[in-house]
Design a protein around this nucleic acid. Sequence first.
RNA 1: GGUCCCGUAGCCAAGUGGCUAAGGCAUAGGACUGCAACUCCUUGAUCACCGGUUCGAAUCCGGUCGGGACCUCCA
Length: 444
Amino acid sequence: MKIHNTLTNKLEPFEPIHKDTVNMYVCGPTVYNYIQIGNARPVIFFDVVRRYFEFLGYTVNFVSNFTDIDDKIITKAIEEQEDEITIAEKFIDAFYKDVERVGSTTKYLAPRVTEYMSAIIDYIDQLVKKGYAYEVDGDVYFRVAKIDHYGDLSGRNIADLETGARVEVNPKKENPLDFTLWKKTPQGITFPSPWGEGRPGWHTECVAMINDIFGGQIDIHGGGADLMFPHHENEIAQHRAIHGHAIAKYWMHNGHLTVDNEKMSKSADNYIFVKDLDVDYMGFRLFTLSTHYRSPLNYTDESLNSYVNEWQRLRRTYTQAFYQLDLAEKLDDTPSYNAELDKIRKNFLAAMDDDFNTANAITELQQLAKYTNHKTRQDDSLNQLLGAVRLFDQFFEILGLDARTKRMSKATRNIYMEWADARKNKNFEKADRLRETLQEKGIL
RNA sequence: GGUCCCGUAGCCAAGUGGCUAAGGCAUAGGACUGCAACUCCUUGAUCACCGGUUCGAAUCCGGUCGGGACCUCCA
């Protein structure tokens, strides 16, 4: 199992810190709006990461936060004449719905900033006491100059960053790179702190949560590539300041999604919410997994549709094989795996082991479909067909693709038999009628 | 202005130094079928461009063009 570590920019063998356990944290959403399809990429990809580790036998402790205190939420609250908590609640519910829509699990620990206020304040307080942070007029800033290796993760050096600063610098800061830990807020929800009423900056929450929940270095820290700088860089800096070592062993970042080769933005009028996609969401999931996670993913209607079709094809292959076995009452037999199936399985796992190369894994899924379609037309090798179905189950489970198919009821089975009979007796009128019924039930 | 990523057939996409550049969709032809649907078989590439390194490059180096991300608070 190899993982590309953003920190070293290399493929590294995965070795868990604690035997048989994977502790991972993925930066979650700021809940001020519905999520757009680009936000769904980490939601889907890191769900696959979790699934694959679980398949390999690890216990995965998966944590992803909600940022429920933020200027954008405050702005939205004022806009909608609601309080921040109500807004946050609304979009947390919406987020969970979208996560389920795209086939990812919602059963993981999801701490919220509002629940972590005292831990965050405590963390900032420690930074101040150790001299890594300073207070100015009710704001608290992190002293970047005091940390070595700032910029390692994103491959930047401090000199370049200073040159590049093109916006007016905040005169309160000792150094333009210093980032906000605590912010005195003129409007919206505030919390009491040693530095007065205010709210936390964005970068401390993840560190405080990781520290509290995991109590030490985690295996994997993930998120979108846009978070690499400054967010993750700042997490590393804070954690190093207090604990003297890196917060995570492996950093994983997914590439961006563009729409017609443009960044999604409201002004470009190409903003697509997950909830508004009018397609089979499993097709969308397959689409996002069709490109390696670190590569950019470009959305076009044509491209999405081709994967929606591909998904329907895969599912059809699966259900046809399933029903054939069901009719023959072979579903509970012992599956047989021949060399061809073993090879497909081996290639699939090798692809996943290679830094979660889902694109190549999907290729094996397609090979499995071809194999299955061949076997479906040969009645003599039902145990091998069963092997194929079981392999499909495994692949679908790992990728989070849901093709669950129920066994036929007795009534349906009878209709099927009648249909077969009618065809045999060339009673085509009756056969066509029954065929329609079976098609409606999704059997044919 | 700075840092970095990407550019493979009509479309999606793997491959990152070495046999004839995976796979899928679409197209076209064929097979199967009572008719369909489904399915199967066959069908396509001067790897953006120019130059260099090498016995050998899609893959490494330099340049050009095109697209994208980040560089401040925020995502």
